[in-house]
Structures are given as C-alpha cells and as structure tokens.
C-alpha cells in the first residue's frame, strides 16, 4: 500500500482543491491520518473507494471525539505606562512588561474514519474531519452514500456527540430514546441526580438524603404518594 504522503498526493491529483493534511501519529502503531476539509470530503471519499490501486471499499469504523474548549494561559509582552518613583519624583514612562493573559481556544467535535480494502487486503487509512465549533456549527458531510456501513455509526455519533451529518438518509438517535435532550458522550455532560441508598449514616450521606428529599417535596409530592416530575441535578451526586 502507498504511504500516507503518496495517498495525499493521489487525492490532490484526483480532487483538485481538496484541503488534505497529514496528521502524524506519535505512537508505535504508525497509523497516521489525513485531515479532510468538509467541503470536498465527499468527492475524496468517492475517489478513495473507486480508485483502482487503493480500492478502499470497506469502512470499518467511524468514531466521534469531543475536544472541549481549552483555557490557555500565555505570557504576552505589552507596552504599558508605568509610574515609578525615582529619587522621590514620580515619573511615568512606557515600558515593556510581561503579562499573563487567559484565552479560550474554542473546541470542536471530530469524526475519525478507518478504511480498509477487502479487494486488495490492505489498510488502515484513517480520515479525520473537524467541525467548526461545539455549539452551533456542528455540521459535517455524511459518508453514508459512499459506504453504507457509516449509516448506523453516524447515527450513533449524532446521538452521543451531536454532530449533524448532512446527506444522511435517516439521521435520528440510535441508542438513547427520542425524547432525550443531551449528547451524553460529551465531556461536559452531567449525569442526572440519582440518590443511592447507603446504610452508613454519616454526615455527607445524611446531607445527600436531605437534598434529595427536599427536591422531591419541591416537585409537589406528599408523603405516601408517588412523586411526579423529574429529578433534575440537585448539587450533583
């Protein structure tokens, strides 16, 4: 099989304008990946499947990954007016000062595809695509029209991560029920409050029980009746 750079060259020759870059993999597995631009990903996928030499006709695995926002602290050199007392006289002069600034690097959601070839018996070729951000722009092109095996896997990624695949024939939740509102595999998902019975009556346990009962009574339940309404996260578990 060709090396990753040769595959990249072949893709760029066949689909001009496709932004492909190599993402190296530091582990001993040596499985480097290719990052695709979402705009041309569909044509690249078709080329990879139909090419006579590569013949990547088997999509083995489609994975979603969540990269949350990162807070980055960096030191920046800034020119500032600094007042200094020199020999009892106050003077202000411009000086370069080092300041530490906090910046939020926006996160994104990523989808990773592993391709193999059943005809040529080689692989894997790893493709990656990133969304723009994690909140409102989470669309990526679906590769289901190229490889049917992506159908259920992309539905699962939509269910658990929230990436919307445009062009998917039947995008709905796979594992959770339809009325469910969150995307559970994201790193910032909070589990619903679930009170656990504990026999040891020490303070933290009693406090948890109090919080739980208080929550139930707020929902309008009376003793002996079955409480209605859901239990929202009350101070976490």
């Amino acid at each position: 099989m060709k090396t990753i750079e040769e595959i990249k060259a072949a893709i760029e020759a066949a689909v001009p304008g496709a932004g492909v870059e190599v993402v190296p993999n530091a582990s001993p597995s040596g499985q480097h990946s290719l990052r695709l631009e979402p705009s041309h990903a569909f044509e690249v996928a078709k080329f990879l499947r139909d090419d006579a030499e590569l013949a990547l006709d088997f999509l083995s695995n489609a994975t979603g990954v969540d990269w949350p926002d990162k807070e980055v602290t960096e030191k920046v050199k800034v020119k500032r007016l600094v007042t200094k007392t020199v020999d009892g006289v106050e003077q202000s002069a411009e000086e370069t000062v080092e300041e530490s600034r906090k910046r939020v690097e926006p996160g994104c959601l990523e989808v990773v595809y592993h391709l193999f070839s059943m005809a040529k018996k080689h692989g894997p070729v790893v493709l990656r695509m990133k969304t723009v951000n994690r909140t409102d722009n989470v669309e990526l092109p679906s590769l289901t029209p190229v490889w049917r095996s992506a159908e259920l896997q992309e539905r699962e990624i939509f269910d658990l991560f929230g990436i919307v695949f445009t062009g998917h024939p039947d995008l709905r939740r796979l594992l959770m029920w339809d009325a469910f509102k969150d995307h559970p595999m994201r790193r910032d998902y909070v589990d619903p409050d679930d009170y656990e019975y504990e026999p040891t009556a020490h303070e933290q346990v009693l406090a948890r029980a109090a919080a739980h009962t208080a929550g139930e009574q707020i929902a309008g339940a009376s003793a002996g009746a079955i409480p209605g309404g859901g239990q929202e996260g009350i101070g976490g578990k």
Binding site: A26, S27, Q31, S60, T63, H114
Partner: peptide, 24 residues
C-alpha cells in the same frame, strides 16, 4: 501511561471484526 497517540487494533472475533480504537 502510554505516550500520546492513537491506535486501532482488530481481531477476527467469532461474530466478525472486533476492533478497539484508543486515543491516549
């Protein structure tokens, strides 16, 4: 603690191709 990287390993399980994809 493995070094940062990723790997996809697969075997012929009795039901098909069972693979694990790990990002470290």
């Amino acid at each position: 603690r493995p070094k940062p990287g990723e790997a996809y390993g697969r075997i012929e399980a009795p039901k098909g191709e069972l693979g694990f994809y790990l990002i470290s």
